[in-house]
Design a protein around this nucleic acid. Structure first.
Lengths: 62, 62
DNA sequence: GATTCTATGTTTAGAAC
DNA sequence: AGTTCTAAACATAGAAT
């Protein structure tokens, strides 16, 4: 544990960015869910993965 | 300050529910924004207000 | 590529405006 | 209907798995 605070700008390290995405995605959906449950506010959310799409093997044969 | 912890279920008190919505709505958008900035994940989000729609005065004259 | 741990950073309930 | 304050609750970076 060096330091934990980060500034809000693109994380350049690929691995760190992916780990951050995994963890924060869960948290954002949880917050949205809580907003709905607590306050009755309907929420719609779409999150597009930042990683490049990896086509399934089947696709590459078409 | 009596206690600050609440369980995640509908807040029945109208005023408390509205205040909670005001504060948490800002936070959820902020978290979504951070996810985009930090990780490059595109996020789309719609939040429907839990309060009844109050028509503008103009509408009531139509 | 998601999850756990934990010290530290961030959010938030309740009260007041 | 949104904002401010602050102690307590909660999220999370970095490292490890």
């Amino acid at each position: 544990m060096t330091k934990r605070k980060i500034e809000i700008k693109r994380i350049e390290n690929d691995e760190a960015r992916q780990v951050c995405f995994s963890k924060r995605r869960v948290s954002v959906f949880k917050k949205a869910s809580e907003l709905y449950t607590l306050c009755g506010a309907e929420v719609a959310m779409l999150i597009k993965s930042p990683v490049g799409h990896v086509p399934s093997p089947r696709c590459s044969e078409d």
